[in-house]
Design a protein around this nucleic acid. Sequence first.
DNA 1: GTCTATATACGGATAGAC
DNA 2: GTCTATCCGTATATAGAC
Lengths: 241, 241
Amino acid sequence: MMETLAVSFTLAEFRKATPLDESNIWAVLLDRNNSRISVKRRDTALENLEKIFAATFGLANTLGFRAMTLRDLCRETGLSMGGLYGYIESKDQLAAMIEDMVRHVSEVLPGWFAHIPSPQDQMECILRAHIFLSEILQPWLYFVFLESRNLAAPQRDIAKASELSMEAHIAALINASGMLSSPDSALLAAHCMSLVQDWHLKRWKFRSANIDVDAFAESVVRLVRSRIESARAPARQPVAG
Amino acid sequence: MMETLAVSFTLAEFRKATPLDESNIWAVLLDRNNSRISVKRRDTALENLEKIFAATFGLANTLGFRAMTLRDLCRETGLSMGGLYGYIESKDQLAAMIEDMVRHVSEVLPGWFAHIPSPQDQMECILRAHIFLSEILQPWLYFVFLESRNLAAPQRDIAKASELSMEAHIAALINASGMLSSPDSALLAAHCMSLVQDWHLKRWKFRSANIDVDAFAESVVRLVRSRIESARAPARQPVAG
DNA sequence: GTCTATATACGGATAGAC
DNA sequence: GTCTATCCGTATATAGAC
């Protein structure tokens, strides 16, 4: 589906091509967890899932997930304790459902751009797509980034493996571009992860500075590109102090 | 004290010049909080403070601060509940002591390099120093980054203001270098914050990849420098897909 | 499908002994 | 300066009514 996008695309263009957005994510969530959810009426289930997860993101953001209580969640959603347990198996499994969704997203993303021949173009598309996805699904990625370390060991490891996998993919694309090689490309790939994650981590900052996601993505891509192209020409020496 | 450093310095060189390190930080901590600490024998106090804060970092790292209980802390330190309360006033104040220390550090850091005439050199020194400080005081910065959002509103605001202050300082230095101006320099300054914070946030990753802090700092500085210098020459156009 | 009521356990903080 | 014992509130999870 991403075949229709130009190499340099905006959030609005990405939205038309992405199979995952704010509205259909609840259906995806329900389908990935239907064995655990006892509520059978689909429309009711979708509505309450949205309430539960939106409230979870809000509460986890201000209190942290472990400090958030299921009573807080009942108050915010309007459900009772008993009603809530029709949708989740336990508090831990609520977090696991979020982790599972984010892992699913990061597994499918790189494949969307596998058809692009130039490694550097492909890398830039992945960076942009990651930033735009983290705009669309911000609460999900933010939650996993900040809360996964507090969950059980298997879930921590999954989050780490997910990051390493995308980073290795980017490093391979940088290597394939022929501009940088082994230690430099690995470090630059790590910097790329940090730069794209900054959008969902520090959204408060960019909002209050009136920086939109298109400008942010363009700035990240230009920064990374200038590092790759500096390998072409000798760098200016800094003035000695 | 930083006057003896060359513009491009290593961790080992920075260690000789910095007034704050792993061993004297306990005395600084005690002095900044002596009104609240009832234990009067200084050597006993220093020893137990180190135990308490080291255990807090370890527990907060795996459980999160709010999920960590004071009973966990007693188990790890060997102190009893009563004994612990000779050093802290409450669980919340334990977190506040950590926040206070980190804020203090970020307030003094920029002044260490105010004597450097070239804005670009000064900025590179600040980036390096921030990375090296986050190597030396990693648990402190990591704690504040990940836990401050879950604490009371005043402490959240202090952490945000601290970040914005350093970011504005970097943006001003980039502007003063004359290479980039307003929207681009603000974005690049934000990227700088993200890049330097990556060292304490993802230490597990760099350790397992055998990347040391000197190589990391050098890579960050080169990345930022190449972006600034790309403003000098026209950039290569990417291949259209 | 959702509610109220409750079982059971553990949290932070303090009092008072030594 | 540190300990043990305890107060009081609140947490997750479930049972059973409607």
